[in-house]
Amino acid sequence: MENISQPPVQPADAAAVHPGIEPISYLLGTWKGQGEGGFPTINSFSYGEELRFTHHSSRPVIAYTQKTWKLNSGEPMHAESGFWRPKPDGSIEVVIAQSTGLAEVLKGTYNTEEKVIKLQSELVGNASKVKEITRVFRLIGGDLSYEVEMATNSTSLQPHLRASLKKL
C-alpha cells in the first residue's frame, strides 16, 4: 500500500519571510497588552490581550490568533482566528472567525511607510445584530495599537475596542 501521508512540516526559518508578506512582516510574532471596550448598548470594560501572527515562508499569508481575558480574574473573554493576505498593490484581504460564531471578511489597505493597516468589512456573517466592522492597526514606536469600530441594526459605526500591545 502506498504511503499517502503528508511530509512532516518543517519549521520556517525565522529569517525567511515570503516576499508577499514582507510589507507587513513587522506584525510577525506575539504581542501582548491591554485594551478597553465599550459601545452605546454595553458597559465599558478593560481586558488583557494576546495577538499572534505567524507564517510559513512558502506561503504569502499570515495566520492570526487573538485571545482576551478579564484583567482581575484571568477568565477568558473572547477569541478569534483567521488569515491575512497582503497583495502587491497595497491592498489586503483578511478573514476572521470569532468564538461568538461571527465571521468577518475584510478588505483594506496597508501603508508600508506609516505602518498602518486599515480594514473594512465586506461581509459580517452569522451575526443577528452586527452589520459593519472596521479595524485600524498602527505600529507606533514599536507598539502595535488598534481600534475597532462597529455598527449594528440600531447604531451607526461607533468606537468599540482599542488596545496597545508590546511585542514579546
Rank of each mutant, 00 (worst) to 15 (best):
Q66M: 05
K87G: 07
T54M: 12
F53K: 00
N72S: 15
G38H: 00
I62W: 08
Y47T: 00
S57I: 01
Y47V: 05
T54W: 00
K70W: 14
N72F: 08
Q66H: 12
Y64H: 09
V94G: 04
W31D: 01
G35Q: 07
P86C: 00
I92M: 10
H55W: 11
H55R: 11
G90Y: 01
S73C: 05
F83M: 12
F45W: 13
F83Q: 11
P40S: 06
G48V: 00
W31N: 04
V61P: 00
W84C: 04
S81E: 12
G90W: 07
S44M: 10
E80N: 04
A79V: 09
F53R: 07
G82A: 06
E93A: 10
K70G: 09
G29D: 08
E75S: 08
E49S: 08
V61Y: 02
K32C: 02
S58Q: 15
T65N: 13
F83C: 05
S57V: 00
F83G: 02
F45V: 06
P40H: 03
S73H: 05
I92A: 07
H56W: 02
S91G: 06
T68R: 01
P60K: 00
T54Y: 10
W31H: 08
P76R: 02
F83E: 05
M77R: 14
I62H: 07
P76M: 07
G82L: 05
I42W: 09
G48K: 04
L51F: 15
G48Q: 04
Q34N: 15
T68K: 06
R52T: 15
F45P: 08
F53M: 01
D89M: 05
P88N: 04
